[in-house]
Amino acid sequence: MMNLLRLLGGRTGSAPVARERLQILLAHERGLRGQPDLLGLLRAEILAVVSRHVKLDPEKVIVRMDRGENVSTLEVDIEVPNGSERSIAAAAI
């Protein structure tokens, strides 16, 4: 449809893109209203679980979310310092 308009009308403005982006974004944000901060919660719990076994720098636990239209991805990036095997071993004793 947009392509057709473009062909017929010469050029089309960016307003339809703005409307579409807003509709997708707001549908998501309205769903989150009143909910706890999901990423913050995940980050804190992941940190707690991993810290039980490996010594971690809390700053080096990064949780990212990328929202797609149908599927979203959750990316968890944890930097484990070298020599943590020893701390695991120590923890086992």
Partner: peptide
């Protein structure tokens, strides 16, 4: 003028959203 050219969100768009 900008709304007519489709460069600005229209009144209908804003009210619908």
């Amino acid at each position: 003028a900008r709304a007519t050219r489709g460069e600005m969100l229209s009144i209908e768009d804003i009210l619908e959203i």
